[in-house]
Computed example of a mutant assay.
Amino acid sequence: MVVCWLLGNGCLFSWNSMLTIEDYYAYLFPDYHPSRVLTLVYQPFALITLAILVYHEAKINTRRRNLFGYTLFFISSLLVLVLDLATSGKGGIGTFIGICVISAAFGVADAHVQGGMIGDLSFMLSDFVQSFAAGLAASGALTSGLRLITRAAFEDSKDGLRKGAILFFAISSFFELLCVLLYAFVFPKLPIVKYYRSKAASEGSKTVSADLAAGGIQVLQGAEAEDESKRMKRLSNKELLMQNIDYALDLFCIYVLTLSIFPGFLSEDTGSHSLGSW
């Protein structure tokens, strides 16, 4: 449960980190509207990548998909640090384009991890999915709290805004590396995870073979595996969509509402408030 919570947290930690330090980017790129542009870059890459993965999901190695996503999160978080240090915290169109590319990479990583992990955990207990979703929700509060701490720590120092952002993304990079290690070496060896993945394989799933191998479990081969898979008929993507059309519409409405508020409305909220620069 704790591992699922941490993996869920890591799924959005990097992206929330980028959103949370937009006060620094607004200072660094005052003419480029980073609060709006970064999200507009992120969303299409996430959506297109997710659509491709959904279409080919029955043939995709789930373990490689999730490992790729978490690794990309880690590398991208690290690149934010490298880019800032390489440019000495200076703005400019080149640096902003680099940040946009990293934002797009976050979108690609999120499409790999979030859908892959939900699908992976759906083979198991519903408590695992709930823990993962709780981690997703907690990542926003956690990154906001960390940002307040890192900003307050350097508030009175020279170049404090930049120092706080650097420390913040250093923490983010470390956390994403932790998620890579957890998923690669800890999660597949948990007894309950091995049990449910074995059960999924026996019911015809073809995407868990690498996960079972990582957990030290032999999978059925040849005719025996084919006989097992024939017992369970897999629905097509269209059939799955039609059976769950109400959930699909719910998700669509939730995303429209969410994006209308953040970054939509909040990005345009330029009024004066008592908290000042905070």
Rank of each mutant, 00 (worst) to 15 (best):
G145M: 01
F154T: 11
A152N: 12
I149N: 02
G145E: 01
L142C: 09
D156A: 10
S139T: 04
R162H: 13
T143D: 06
A134K: 12
F154V: 00
T143A: 09
G140R: 02
L146N: 03
E155M: 08
D159A: 11
A133Q: 13
R162M: 08
L161A: 05
G135K: 00
R147N: 13
L136C: 13
K158Y: 15
D159E: 13
F154Q: 06
G140L: 02
A141N: 14
L142N: 10
L148C: 10
G135W: 01
S131D: 15
R151N: 12
R151H: 11
K163W: 06
A153K: 15
G160C: 01
E155N: 11
L136G: 07
G160T: 05
F154H: 12
A134W: 13
L148H: 14
R147Y: 04
A133K: 09
L161V: 08
A152I: 03
A141V: 06
L136P: 02
T143C: 08
L161I: 14
G160M: 01
S131L: 11
G140Q: 01
L146S: 01
A134Q: 10
I149T: 04
R147V: 01
A141C: 03
R162S: 03
E155Y: 11
F154R: 09
S157D: 11
A153I: 07
